[in-house]
Design a protein around this nucleic acid. Structure first.
Length: 213
DNA sequence: GGTGTGATCGTA
DNA sequence: ACGATCACACCA
C-alpha cells in the first residue's frame, strides 16, 4: 500500500530565523506537492545549505537585490527558484526577514510519495536514491522551475510538512558544495542526515585504521 | 572507487 | 565569462 502522507505545514514564523539556524531544522521535514493537475509527490529533506545575504560571498544575494534574486529579499516561507548552468533549476526556502536576502538551498531528499512520477520526470530507469539526490535533480523530480519562483510554502499547494519526525540531534555538517575558492567556501553551512543514501554526495567515509576498518 | 568533460544560456 | 549542476565516459 502507498505510504500515507500526513503532517502539519510549517508556519510563517518557523521560517523567520537565521538560515544557519533554520537549515538543520529543515532536515527530516517533508516537501509535498499538491498542485492541481499534477501528480502528487513528496520527499523527506536530507541535505540543505544556508546562504546568508550581504555577509556571504557565496550567496546570490551578496551584491544586493536584482531581478533574478528578488524573491530572496522578500518575506520568509517562500520558494526562491533560480536557473543555473544554462539548464538546471534549484530551489531555496527564503529565511529570516524581508530585505536581508537569506535562504536555505534544498540539496537532497528521500522520496516518500509518487516515486514512479518522479522517475518519469527524471527520465530513464534510475534507482530511487538518485531521484532527488542533488538540488537540480530534486527540482526535476518535483517539476519545479521558474514559474514556481515566489511560491508561498505556507499557504500554497507546495508545502513543507512536519510529520513528527524530528531533525537529527547530531546532523552531519560540512562546507558547501560547488563554490569557487574564496567565495564562501570557508563556511561550514551545509547540513545533512548522516548516512542517508539520498545525499547529493556519498556520506563522507569515516577515517580508516590500518586494517581498513 | 575515482577523475575529466561537454551541455547550454541567463546574468552581471 | 562564468555558474549554489548533471550525466556519462573512461580509468583503476
Amino acid at each position: 500500500m502507498a505510504p500515507r502522507l500526513s503532517g502539519r505545514p510549517l508556519g510563517r514564523r518557523f521560517y523567520a530565523r537565521d538560515p544557519r539556524e533554520l537549515a538543520p531544522l529543515l532536515l527530516n521535514k517533508v516537501l509535498a506537492d499538491r498542485r492541481p493537475g499534477l501528480d502528487q509527490v513528496a520527499a523527506r529533506i536530507v541535505e540543505v545549505e544556508a546562504y546568508c545575504g550581504s555577509e556571504d560571498r557565496g550567496s546570490h544575494a551578496y551584491r544586493g537585490p536584482t531581478r533574478r534574486n528578488r524573491t530572496m529579499f522578500g518575506p520568509p516561507g517562500h520558494l526562491y527558484v533560480y536557473f543555473t548552468y544554462g539548464m538546471h533549476w534549484c530551489a531555496n526556502v527564503v529565511a529570516a526577514t524581508e530585505g536581508v536576502g537569506m535562504a536555505v538551498l534544498l540539496r537532497a531528499a528521500a522520496p516518500v510519495l509518487g516515486i514512479e512520477h518522479m522517475r518519469e520526470r527524471r527520465g530513464g530507469t534510475r534507482p530511487d536514491r538518485e531521484l532527488c539526490a542533488g538540488p537540480a535533480r530534486l527540482t526535476q523530480a518535483f517539476a519545479i522551475s521558474g514559474s514556481e519562483d515566489g511560491a508561498d510554502l505556507v499557504r500554497g499547494p507546495l508545502r513543507l510538512l512536519d510529520d513528527g519526525t524530528p531533525p537529527p540531534t547530531r546532523p552531519g555538517r560540512s562546507t558547501r558544495i560547488g563554490l569557487t575558492p574564496g567565495r564562501g567556501d570557508e563556511h561550514r553551512w551545509r547540513w545533512f542526515v548522516e548516512g542517508d543514501t539520498n545525499l547529493s554526495r556519498p556520506a563522507p567515509r569515516r577515517a580508516r585504521n590500518s586494517r581498513g576498518v
